[in-house]
Design a protein around this nucleic acid. Structure first.
Length: 474
RNA sequence: GGUGGGUUGGCCGAGAGGCGAGGCAACGGACUGCAAAUCCGUGUACACGGGUUCAAAUCCCGUACCCACCUCCA
């Protein structure tokens, strides 16, 4: 069955601009490289969308039987980090390190699996130097003649430049990420940035062309090939990275003789009030702030409910609505009592779900399948048929693929043992009250029965009368 | 100037030539002592103007508005 899955997945490839069959370079194995973040500030919900999207891709490939090698980098040295660190009066590496830690916490809180490896730019400098040397030797890069120590990629030497985004070289505006004086063509981009006296010495590494630091694009080419090889399956990132970042990555990697990525996947933005989040003021959209209003699993459900290539206009209203929708799914699982059951989840997933996921990760349709099964399960539950348990474990299996299984230990935030003790204590108290209510109901003393229910409700606990007696939940 | 994407019912959000994804909200019904939960039912939505077609939200032409990238950006 997993073999069948492998041949059926179709993905949207930015390079060809079409949804096409996913054919791995190596049978049963998938290598994925995703551009992570530049760790220069706290992550907001927009930042983590990309991580969630590619986490879903990774989980689906795994569920389909692939051995997935998933690399997500961290850019821990660049202009912005240096500028912000100076502004804040602390070492650049301290800022990068602290923000990296925040990112890790934020991603864990929405159940994004740790990648196979998370390389940092600063740890891959030797590989970058080697790559730059190759490019110089092949005539695709040159040392700036102004003595700055910069090394540039020569776009004119690579006729295919612009192929990923289908742009003509002469229609482009010139790159301005470095002083243009040392460039042969204004569109040439920096591979290596020569050390400047205004920058801290700790931000410079020795190189054949003098001390300096890596350009932004070369780091991804170096990290991707180091951990996945010169040719790998999927390269991902946000739409904004298509140009110049990904275009440059592909140009320099191929110019160095590497086939590079077979598929390019790009996720759309999540904006607020029509603006990118980086422009938004305040910190209400930082992941920890958002998680004060909804649980991590609900935030993730909200993101997964939209297709990864669809632009999402973030609002707390929509987020809370999604949370209500997810509650319906969770309630079904609770009523079917499969959440506690640590049983093995079925590997066989509903056909409609598989079809949805295989069609360029159609998570909205996949979520619709989950809702359909929840309704079916609720009906089975009402009829008290044994089918309910089977349906519930299927629902859980589908949720697990999306990283949304409520029983996943990853969601257990606080001390589990303490929670369990507290729950037992509350159960004793509520049960006592419910017994009293049962007596009142038996005597048809509705006023007293409702008064008890109201008191319990005032404590934030809901009572549900089921055929097998009342149940409580917070 | 160049390259892409978008505009779907009260709201969110899929789909991409014929059969009204799904959710939230609302209304009606069933169940209930009353609720809650659950189930059943109710909505003739696809920016605008033309065109192609037996058939268009989906294809073509035009118009309007919005957005992204071409500078750091998920």
């Amino acid at each position: 069955m997993t073999q069948q899955h492998q041949s059926r997945l179709r993905l949207h490839d930015t390079a060809t601009r079409e949804v096409r069959d996913f054919v791995p370079l190596q049978e049963g194995r998938a290598g994925i490289y995703v551009c992570g973040l530049t760790v220069q500030s706290e992550p907001h919900v927009g930042h983590v969308r990309s991580a969630v999207n590619f986490d879903v891709l990774r989980r689906w490939l795994t569920a389909s039987g692939y051995d997935v090698h998933f690399i997500r980098n961290v850019t821990d040295i660049d202009d912005k980090i240096l500028a912000k660190a100076e502004e804040q009066g602390r070492p650049w590496y301290n800022l990068a390190y602290a923000m990296h830690a925040e990112l890790t916490t934020a991603l864990a809180s929405i159940n994004v699996l740790p990648p196979t490896y998370e390389p940092g730019a600063t740890g891959t400098v030797p590989e970058m130097l080697e790559l730059i040397s190759t490019l110089i030797a092949r005539g695709h890069a040159y040392v700036a003649e102004d003595g700055s120590g910069d090394v540039y990629f020569d776009v004119r030497s690579w006729p295919q430049y612009g192929e990923l985004t289908r742009q003509g070289l002469d229609d482009m505006e010139p790159a301005t990420d470095a002083d243009p004086r040392g460039k042969r063509d204004p569109r040439d981009f920096a591979l290596w940035k020569g050390y400047k006296k205004s920058e801290p010495e700790s931000a410079a590494w020795p190189s054949p062309w003098g001390p300096g630091r890596p350009g932004w694009h070369i780091e991804c080419s170096a990290m991707a090939s180091k951990y996945l090889g010169p040719a790998f399956d999927i390269h991902g990132g946000g739409v904004d990275l298509r140009f110049p970042h990904h275009e440059n990555e592909q140009a320099q990697s191929r110019a160095a003789g590497m086939p590079f990525a077979s598929y390019w996947l790009h996720n759309a933005w999540i904006t607020t009030a029509g603006e990118k989040m980086s422009k938004s003021l305040g910190n209400s959209l930082l992941v920890p702030s958002v998680l004060e209003r909804v649980r991590g699993i609900e935030l993730r459900f909200y993101m997964v409910s939209a297709h990864y290539r669809s632009h999402v206009e973030f609002s707390f209203e929509a987020l809370e609505e999604a949370a209500v929708g997810f509650l319906r799914i969770e309630n079904f699982l609770k009523r079917a009592e499969v959440i506690e059951a640590a049983t093995e989840l079925p590997t066989e997933l509903p056909d409609a779900f598989v079809a949805a996921m295989d069609d360029d990760l159609g998570t909205p349709a996949a979520v619709a399948v989950i809702h359909d099964l929840v309704r079916e399960g609720n009906t089975a539950l009402a009829a008290d048929t044994p089918a309910a348990a089977g349906i519930a474990s299927q629902v859980r299996a589908m949720l697990a693929v999306l990283g949304l299984d409520p029983a996943d230990p990853a969601w257990a935030t606080t001390n589990g043992a303490g929670d369990e003790k507290l729950r037992e204590a509350v159960d004793v108290l509520i049960t006592a009250l419910l017994e009293e209510r049962a007596t009142a109901r038996a005597e048809k003393d509705w006023a007293r029965a409702d008064a008890i229910r109201d008191r319990i409700a005032a404590a934030g606990i809901e009572i549900e009368d089921t055929p097998s007696g009342p149940k409580w939940s917070i």
